[in-house]
């Protein structure tokens, strides 16, 4: 057997090892119930509950933004995001939060939002009426 083959086999072995370990870095989107049970850091996907309040008072703490998220099971839960309120948060179609359950709040340290792609509605390309 050539040396190159030994190296190749070694690399494949390492690759398989790493790939098997990788699963630990991954998770499916959790729900609030699962986050409650596990207590671990999870990712939760859901949508903003627009009817409920969003609280951001930078004069009290610029790093706290509270809102309600509806997870994929339809359960609504209060979220504390440890960030300044993101731009255009209300427009997000989907919100993905990384964090864990703490007491009665889901404390999120990171977020990703998916914003709607360009609208195809007529109003978008109509000039604003001058009044």
């Amino acid at each position: 057997m050539k040396k190159i083959h030994i190296v190749a086999i070694g690399m494949i072995a390492v690759a398989i090892f790493i790939l098997s370990r990788m699963a630990g870095d991954m998770s499916s989107y959790a729900t609030f119930d699962q986050a409650e049970v596990s207590g671990k850091k999870v990712k939760i996907a859901g949508e903003l509950v627009k009817e409920k309040e969003m609280v951001y008072k930078p004069e009290e703490d610029p790093n706290e933004f509270r809102f309600y998220l509806r997870d994929t099971d339809g359960k609504e839960h209060r979220v504390l995001l440890l960030r300044a309120k993101p731009q255009d948060f209300e427009l997000a179609e989907q919100i993905v939060l990384t964090g864990r359950m703490k007491g009665d709040e889901f404390v999120a340290t990171d977020y990703l939002t998916k914003c709607p792609s360009k609208y195809k509605d007529e109003e978008v390309f109509l000039k604003e009426k001058k009044s």
């Binding site: 930078p58 009290e60 703490d61 610029p62 790093n63 440890l82 960030r83 703490k102 404390v107 340290t109």
Partner: peptide, 17 residues
Amino acid sequence: LMDGIIEGAEEDAAKKN
């Protein structure tokens, strides 16, 4: 402004503003 609002180091690290 941060005193005692949140426990846990990881969350503290997220306080950046």
